[in-house]
Design a protein around this nucleic acid. Structure first.
Lengths: 110, 110
DNA sequence: CGGATTGGTGGATGATTGTCAAACCGTCCC
DNA sequence: GGGACGGTTTGACAATCATCCACCAATCCG
């Protein structure tokens, strides 16, 4: 489970606020964030994410940006990848930020 | 004071989260945000903002992005412009977001 | 083995962007 | 009027970016 391979991601202390904001300043990636808000692991398939209109390589690109910014983590198991939010790391580094962002997306502009 | 002319800016309800995050996902603009965190009005002169290395037209461009995103407001008085945070509008629309952002910039990664 | 599934890589392309420079504009003041 | 001051606008340019497409790689399963 947890000891599967993980794709490269920044250490908690290396998560940079500007990079995170830049990563989330895109409609597709902010929508991915809302999908991940449930804390569960998600596949990369665009059809499971309400992104049917996007090419799978485009979604792959966006997920890489999120991961390299430190927003998500990706666990590799067989031919599947399981993406989830790094909630604890983000909360520790930027207290209240994630909650405020998720609340903001829920209240309307998501 | 308050009834001076103001440069165009979005109405409170039109402030869009993606646009705000995109605006703040730039090191110069995030730094401007920290300058404005005191709630006071600030001139546009790069030398008063710790941005001596930037051309004044570049700073003008960044301030326009912030204003059009709804992050700041600009009051015009004579030949001067006074830029300040739209704290009340942002707090009303995205509760806790601004506080979390400013706390994050203060704690380190500014 | 061989096909299907899941997802990523690399190239191409058009759009956006950050920056500077130079010209411009309204205002203040001598 | 005519500088000087504070900022904006426009244009140019390189860099980044979002997207698609075609191809590739690893894994699972019959």
């Amino acid at each position: 489970m947890t000891d599967d391979e993980r794709l490269p991601q920044p250490a908690p202390a290396e998560i940079d606020l500007v990079t995170v904001l830049h990563a989330l300043g895109d409609p597709v990636r902010l929508r991915l964030l809302t999908s991940y808000a449930d804390g569960a692991e998600h596949s990369c398939d665009p059809r499971h994410l309400g992104l049917e209109h996007l090419h799978k390589s485009t979604v792959s690109h966006h997920m890489r940006v999120l991961r390299e910014a430190g927003v998500t983590t990706t666990r590799v198991a067989g031919r599947n990848r399981y993406v989830s939010l790094r909630r604890a790391d983000l909360d520790a580094r930027f207290p209240g930020l994630l909650d405020a962002l998720l609340a903001a997306t829920r209240s309307r502009s998501g």
